[in-house]
Design a protein around this nucleic acid. Sequence first.
DNA 1: ATGGCCGCCCTAGGCGGA
Length: 301
Amino acid sequence: MSIHSPSDKPIFNKATEKTLTTCKLATWNINSVRLRIDQVIAFLNTHQPDILGLQETKCLPEQFPYQPFIEAGYEFIEVSGQKGYHGAATVSKLPLERLETDFCPIGEARHVSTRVKIGIASDNEMGAGTFEFHNFYVPAGGDEADVTLNPKFKHKLEFLKNMTDYFTDRAKGDDARHVLVGDFNIAPGEHDVWSHKQLLKVVSHTPLEVGVLKGLQDSHNFTDTSRLHRSEEEKLYSWWSYRAKDVFKSNRGRRLDHIWVSPALRQSAIAAGIDGFEIHTNCRIWERPSDHAPITQILKF
DNA sequence: ATGGCCGCCCTAGGCGGA
């Protein structure tokens, strides 16, 4: 199975020389990039993130719609894809270097690892002009929250534990500059779901998987940027089921999508202020929408 | 209220999503 992009991807251009004071990060589970290419491009044109991580692209690399992204100014594209299911892709205005370290157990396309060149001229510390951008699609985990009965749930927990090991190898020291984005398929907080009590046994919000995700976060002191300027009590959702008749009337959402940063980038996320983080909920009620809304986080250097 | 919808695939019911 081919899970990597073709080798004739665009090469670095003059953007390498660009000096940035901010960088806008985005992530969106698009639930078929081919079906919703017009929506993705509309989102990019309106909100102009520098980098977007897409999940559930649901196509092989050779089927990926490169051209519309390039025409919209996103020349740097790295894809991990398989036929019909899963898949992740990172599209960027800034030069991307593909790290050959994608973490895709059992051959599934669920991770694109890249290094982003932000080109801060004033900062000459090693690595300060770059950060790693890790785009993940964590397994959903099936219905039954029991590892002995449900191999998909077991796979989900193992995936998260392997992610922890992966970053133990990579994210050493306080200088490590890492961004983790994606559909983590877990709503960790009480107010990351519409009803904490009713979802305690529902995969995506069980204490077991929330604990494993917390283990990943704590092991490297990653910051969940969504809560930096929002109270823990504020309801935040990025996913709403297709099954609800009126999505925002019932508003039974979950915050499954995340943008995390390593300690070295925490101040940059804080500096962006309360408006630095946004959930673009309007995208969830576009015609034939994804069941996820995109989220963005600005980093200010 | 445990049913309600999606998108994909060797086009049609099954799988995966969550």
